[in-house]
Design a protein around this nucleic acid. Structure first.
Length: 802
RNA sequence: GCGGAUAUGGUGGAAUUGGCAGACACGCUAGAUUUAGGAUCUAGUGCGAAAGCAUGCAGGUUCAAGUCCUGUUAUCCGCACCA
């Protein structure tokens, strides 16, 4: 047999698959279904990264195996194509983002096709297509209708030189990424989505889902539920200052209060605060810092004491000073805290720095040295009617007291914040809202969707921080859908997260122009049986899409309350030097080069063999050779394939073990050991010197999900009948997996001293006495006292001697 | 800082979940074959001369620890307008 021409063969089968549509999901809703999903890519200008094929190949393997097992499989692909890099590229090179997107998609698609994925290309979607974002806008209208979309003043990053809003990522060390100028926080009115209303359900419903544990944990921590109380203090100006605390039990230990520099009461107190200039200066300073910098625990605590206004502690009517400090965030809780330096680490440091009194109210630690934060063991002291109680009981009693005196109430708080949904950008879905002077914010009627992005020549940001759409006067000026008076369109666009929060629904029925997807299609395909994606999407995309899905469930659009039944996550592929691949590090590997030099099957095998799918792994081009050799050795089997029965009993049982191992390894994402097992099998076949047709057929099917091209070709050459993709997944016989005898280790005091051969099903006593008969062991135990003897089935004998 | 994870030969990684550490590959060494090899095949390959020693580091539990417990160090991912 001549050597394997991967280029011609791979092209041949890719064309055949394209023409036949063999991987299209069937419209037959009576068959068992399997919906297998990977995160759709952002079609960047750099083209496909070698990281993309890692998860696409893994799920392709699962999809292909499921087809062999008789499922109607949906394995779709699409483009998450709105976004900042495209817009920036367009601005820089004066090419319209739509053109940029079109070119990038064409390139991505070509690259994906060259890898032989079994995607259903008839269901390809693109978030920037008006027929798609029509439904993104429709969902927004529903959210608005239900009161879940609202406007709010929010701080944004503002570049003082470019005069535009920056993404956090565009802010580098407090400066603008592009021009290096100072970036400040500026308040702007933004569209917000009330994800916090779903916080509890987003936590509770995780219990019934098959997500990997670290994803669940990270989501729970991100939502950050904490229970405590809101307590109302009164200021000496007579205003109510509400604080949230998880430790209401320590209320008697509150010796001062800290408010976020942005707290609205501070402006109200302008006349009362004698050092208002100093306060303003501090506010400006903290406006320059990110939340992240502000809450860093190791940094020196800063703050300003308000001169002229104090707070009154509701339990003992004591006056305490009020500080502003940047470690208190306006976005969490009420934007103000009661400080209990005796029992909170940050408050303790702050009190030390500003020389504030520290009162012990829970006994058990040494508050001279550090804050005592333990809630389990402490006993209340210096706390009036709480004295002598445990922390738990004190929490309950103080909360009752506060409620009775209308000074507070129990409260559940979440770290999760509402979703800032506005972007002052061009390349996003227009928000379908009109602002009418008389009627306020008025939604566009559903029939008028999609509200298309106007085609313009310039998408540069405006001077005043408005979206580039604000400059297109004939687009902005419209009439109010409600009263008909002249009105203005919303000029902000949606974030990229919008399109990706429901795309998986569209795949079920991608060409429907009357619904986002038909009821019937959604009933059949929901929920997604297996969704794989990066850990970096755990807290944003994954949570946002669960939120939207729950909302759509509540209004009766989708049949399940959760979108994804199972979620797994792949590790990153790093550069050869073990660092993240990036242009600036110069360690980027282009998948096209690999496919050209080694072929798609080798590339797929290599990425699946590189290591544990869930862990990061460094790329190593020289290791690919091993997979290339394996492909060649597979091809070589054509020369030693013979008709008739199996030629080796040993090979036969190895065959059965391989079926078992490969099947279970695919299901548990252990592609690396599945491949290793097949490599061992092939080594064995060459050792035996021949393989019969039945065995070769089995091996071809096992390998097909990994290396689909060569196995199709060999199936055809061997004339095994039909095409390989219409075969059934092989089964194994448990009895035939076992060998008759096995080698076990014999240990003395836990150290291996010898090995013996025993029957697989040997009894414990027999194994031990056989072990003692072994020459080396007999010598070891001679004259010694045997304390313990044990046999671990199929593994070892351990004899403990003294 | 907060939250999540990871650490095993020269390299990527295996290890039935507490039971023979290093499967399967890469690389390397030697040999065969070839006009030639960055091709193929064969043999060897954790360290150590050996007794032995080895799973980031320091302790602990156990007949037995890469795996469990305590502490510690380093690296990676996310932190809400990158996707």
């Amino acid at each position: 047999m001549k050597s394997y021409d991967f280029k011609a063969t791979e092209k041949k089968w890719q064309n055949k698959w394209d023409e036949s549509g063999v991987f299209y999901a069937q419209q037959d809703f009576t068959k068992p279904k399997f919906y297998c999903l990977v995160e759709f890519p952002y079609p960047s200008g750099q083209g496909l990264h070698v990281g993309h094929p890692r998860s696409y190949t893994m799920l392709d393997i699962i999809a292909r195996k499921k087809r062999f097992e008789g499922y109607n499989v949906l394995y779709p692909m699409g483009w998450d194509a709105f976004g900042l890099p495209t817009e920036n590229y367009a601005i820089k090179n004066h090419i319209h983002p739509e053109i940029v997107t079109k070119n990038n998609i064409a390139n991505f698609k070509k690259q994906l096709k060259s890898l032989g994925f079994s995607f259903d290309w008839s269901r390809e979607i693109n978030t920037t297509d008006p027929s798609y974002y029509k439904w993104t806008q429709w969902i927004f209208l529903k959210l608005f209708e239900q009161g879940l979309a609202y406007k709010k003043e929010m701080a944004v990053n503002w570049c003082t030189s470019c005069k535009c809003v920056l993404a956090n990522e565009e802010v580098v060390n407090g400066g603008c990424e592009r021009c290096g100028s100072e970036v400040v926080r500026k308040v702007k009115s933004q569209w917000m989505l009330k994800i916090t209303q779903y916080a509890q359900r987003l936590i509770d419903d995780l219990d019934d889902l098959d997500y990997i544990e670290r994803v669940k944990l990270q989501q729970k921590n991100w939502i950050g539920r904490s229970t405590g109380a809101e307590v109302d203090f009164t200021s000496t100006t007579g205003d109510k200052i509400t604080v949230f605390t998880t430790r209401p039990d320590t209320l008697f230990g509150a010796t001062y209060m800290v408010m976020s520099p942005e707290h609205p009461l501070i402006d109200k107190w302008e006349k009362n605060i004698k050092n208002f200039d100093e306060v303003c200066e501090y506010r400006q300073e903290s406006a320059r810092k990110s939340d992240f910098e502000r809450t860093e625990i190791n940094k020196e605590k800063t703050g300003v004491c308000l001169d002229g206004v104090c707070a009154i502690n509701p339990v003992n009517n004591k006056e305490i000073p009020i500080f502003i400090s940047d470690y208190v965030l306006v976005s969490y809780g009420t934007g103000a805290i009661m400080a209990v330096p005796g029992h909170d680490t940050r408050d303790f440091e702050f009190a030390k720095k500003f020389d504030l009194p520290i009162i012990e109210v829970v006994k058990g630690g040494d508050i001279e040295k550090e804050a005592f934060t333990d809630c389990e063991t402490g006993i209340m002291v210096n706390s009036g009617f709480l004295d002598g109680l445990s922390v738990e009981d004190a929490k309950e009693k103080i909360t009752q007291f506060l409620e009775k005196h209308e000074k507070g109430h129990p409260k559940v708080n979440y770290k999760l914040r509402d979703w800032v949904f506005s972007r002052q950008r061009y390349w996003g879905e227009p928000i379908p809202i009109v602002h009418c002077e008389k009627c306020g914010y008025v939604p566009l009627p559903e029939e008028s969707l999609p509200l298309e992005l106007p085609m313009v020549d310039s998408y540069e940001p405006t001077e005043n921080g408005e979206s580039p759409l604000a400059k297109i006067t004939d687009w902005i000026n419209t009439t109010c859908p409600k009263c008909g008076a002249p009105a203005k369109r919303e000029t902000d666009t949606m974030p990229q997260w919008a399109g990706s929060s429901w795309y998986f629904l569209r795949y079920c029925d991608p060409h429907n122009d009357t619904e986002l997807a038909s009821k019937q299609a959604l009933e059949y395909w929901s929920p997604i049986d297996w969704y794989n994606g990066g850990m970096e999407h755990t807290t944003l995309h994954l949570l946002y899409s669960r939120f939207w899905h729950k909302f759509l469930y509540d209004i009766g659009v989708v049949p399940t309350c959760e979108p994804y039944a199972k979620r797994t996550s792949h590790g990153m592929i790093l550069g050869e030097n073990g660092e993240k691949m990036s242009k600036s590090r110069g360690n980027v590997v282009n998948p096209d080069d690999i496919v050209n030099e080694f072929g798609a099957d080798t590339m797929r095998l290599y990425e699946m063999f590189i290591g544990d799918f869930e862990k990061a792994a460094p790329w190593n081009t020289s290791s690919i050779k091993g997979c290339r050799r394996f492909i060649d050795r597979i091809w070589g089997l054509l020369d030693i394939a013979v008709a008739g029965k199996s030629y080796s009993k040993e090979l036969e049982s190895e065959m059965h073990r391989t079926i078992k191992k490969v099947s279970s390894d695919i299901d548990s994402l252990k592609s690396n050991t599945a491949i290793a097992t097949m490599m061992s099998l092939v080594n064995k076949i060459y050792e035996v010197g021949r393989i019969n047709h039945a065995e070769l057929k089995t091996l071809m099917i096992l390998l097909n999900p990994f290396a689909p091209h060569i196995t199709e070709e060999m199936w055809e050459i061997m004339d095994f009948g039909g095409v390989i993709t219409s075969q059934k997944w092989p089964t194994f016989d448990e009895q035939k997996c076992k060998d008759e005898s096995i080698e076990i280790a014999v240990q003395i005091n836990g150290k291996v001293k010898s090995k013996i051969n025993v029957a697989t099903d040997i009894e414990s006593e027999n194994a031990i006495s056989l072990a003692k008969e072994d020459e080396k062991i007999a010598k070891e135990i001679e004259g010694k006292q045997i304390i313990k003897e044990l046999y671990v089935k199929g593994r070892l004998v351990n004899i403990v001697v003294k």
